[in-house]
Amino acid sequence: MDLDAYVLEHAGQWQRLEQLTRRGRLTGAEADELVEAYQRVATHLSVVRTQAPDAQVVAYLSVLLARARTRAAGTRVGTWRAVRSFVTERFPAALYRLRWWWLGCLAGNVVVTGVMMLWLLAHPDVEQSLLSPAEIDQLVQEDFAGYYSQYAAGSFATQVWVNNAWVTALCLALGVLGLPVLWLLFQNMANLAVIGAIMTRNDAGLQFWGLLLPHGLLELTAVFVAAGVGLRLFWSWVSPGSLSRSRSMAREGRTAATVALGLVGVLLVSGLIEGFVTPSGLPTWARLAIGVLAELVFLAYVFVLGRAAVRRGHTGDLGADLLEDTVATRA
């Protein structure tokens, strides 16, 4: 690495950060600029330390960053700007760019679950091999409906949120391996098909769908999003396209992290619906309407806000100013 060329290339940015740290009161735009400049210079320091550890340059950048960090701690403007950008640009752009992956998971799982449920309804002997008549009666008469009302709504919503977050995290974390994600989806859908077939056979189909769909539409969509993004991460090293495998995986890995963070909020909404709406005394049509509305809002978020963000150049990945710095080299 040519350290002199690197210093010459970035000296202007370092001087600008130094100017911002010495100013009295910063405007909102200057506070944003301070945070962004701090992130860039932190990358510069990392590059210098690993590629050309010159003591003088390292000391200068370390002191500069310390002052900038102290100054940035006094303002939250940049933080709120980053949150707003994430919610309105990065997360919806990631969902829209990867839409065919998770929509494919959604469609495939709906078809598989439907086929499995119909097959189970046509083969009652399979049901009898899984559960005894007493266990089936317990499930239909008490356990299924009781599951949604056995805890206080607040604690139940928290429990559901944590559990669903864990499932989506597994789909994302195991996505790079491919097959484990498909196995998780199969287990989830098989369990749903078995319970649905049992409830339907015992004339409790309306109760089954009336309790499942209000929260399940959004909840399962979140799981399918996580699975689709996980499978895209797997495909990024199988078929990296014009990028190297490492760069392809790095890009999709960062996008997967964006989706994981955003799905925390989506699952919070589905958990609140499951905790407060599903077991409520509202008529079935009202509970279903709330579930459908939540799903439509999510889809509008993806296909309206997400498409607009993609058209503005967002992909769900980090901004170019936060990515690894390009090191200047001497020919």
Results as ranks from 00 to 15, higher is better:
His10Gln: 06
Ala11Asp: 12
Ala11Asn: 08
Ala11Arg: 13
Ala11Met: 10
Ala11Gly: 08
Ala11Ile: 11
Gly12Lys: 11
Trp14Asp: 06
Trp14Leu: 07
Gln15Gly: 14
Leu17His: 10
Leu17Thr: 12
Leu17Phe: 10
Glu18Ile: 01
Gln19Cys: 08
Gln19Tyr: 12
Gln19Arg: 13
Gln19Lys: 14
Thr21Ala: 09
Gly24Lys: 07
Arg25Glu: 14
Leu26Glu: 09
Leu26Lys: 05
Leu26Gly: 07
Leu26His: 08
Thr27Arg: 15
Thr27Tyr: 09
Gly28Glu: 04
Glu30Lys: 00
Ala31Thr: 03
Ala31Ile: 05
Ala31Gly: 06
Ala31Met: 02
Asp32Lys: 00
Val35Ala: 04
Val35Ser: 00
Val35Asp: 00
Val35Thr: 02
Ala42Leu: 13
His44Ala: 03
His44Cys: 01
His44Thr: 02
Leu45Val: 04
Ser46Pro: 12
Val48Arg: 09
Val48Pro: 05
Arg49Trp: 01
Thr50Ile: 10
Thr50Cys: 09
Thr50His: 14
Gln51Ser: 14
Ala52Gly: 05
Asp54Met: 09
Val57Cys: 00
Val58Thr: 15
Val58Met: 15
Val58Asp: 09
Val58Gly: 05
Ala59Met: 04
Tyr60Leu: 07
Tyr60Arg: 06
Leu61Glu: 04
Leu61Pro: 08
Val63Phe: 08
Val63Pro: 01
Leu64Val: 06
Leu65Gly: 03
Arg67Glu: 12
Arg67Ile: 10
Arg67Asn: 15
Arg67Lys: 15
Arg67Gly: 05
Arg69Pro: 03
Arg69Cys: 07
Arg69Ala: 11
Arg69Thr: 05
Arg69Val: 03
Thr70Ile: 09
Thr70Val: 09
Thr70Ser: 10
Arg71Gln: 02
Arg71Phe: 01
Arg71Asp: 00
Ala72Met: 04
Ala72Gly: 04
Ala72Pro: 05
Ala73Pro: 02
Ala73Trp: 03
Gly74Pro: 00
Thr75Pro: 01
Thr75Tyr: 11
Thr75Asn: 04
Val77Ile: 14
Gly78Arg: 01
Gly78Cys: 01
Gly78Tyr: 00
Thr79Arg: 09
Thr79Glu: 12
Arg81Thr: 13
Arg81Tyr: 04
Val83Thr: 03
Val83Gln: 01
Val83Tyr: 02
Arg84Ala: 11
Ser85Thr: 14
Val87Gln: 01
Thr88Pro: 02
Glu89Cys: 09
Arg90Phe: 10
Arg90Asn: 15
Phe91Gly: 13
Pro92Glu: 11
Ala93His: 15
Ala93Val: 15
Ala94Gln: 12
Leu95Tyr: 07
Leu95Pro: 12
Leu95Cys: 12
Leu95Val: 12
Tyr96Leu: 08
Tyr96Gly: 05
Arg97Tyr: 03
Arg97Pro: 03
Arg99Leu: 13
Trp102Ser: 06
Leu103Arg: 13
Leu103Gly: 12
Gly104Trp: 04
Gly104Cys: 07
Gly104Gln: 03
Gly104Lys: 02
Gly104Asn: 03
Gly104Thr: 07
Leu106Gln: 08
Ala107Glu: 11
Gly108Trp: 08
Asn109Pro: 04
Asn109Trp: 03
Val111Arg: 11
Val115Ser: 10
Met116His: 05
Met116Asn: 04
Met117Asn: 06
Met117Gln: 15
Leu118Asn: 09
Trp119Glu: 06
Trp119His: 11
Trp119Met: 12
Trp119Ile: 11
Leu121Asn: 14
His123Ala: 05
His123Cys: 02
His123Val: 04
Pro124Cys: 12
Pro124Thr: 13
Pro124His: 08
Asp125Val: 14
Val126Lys: 02
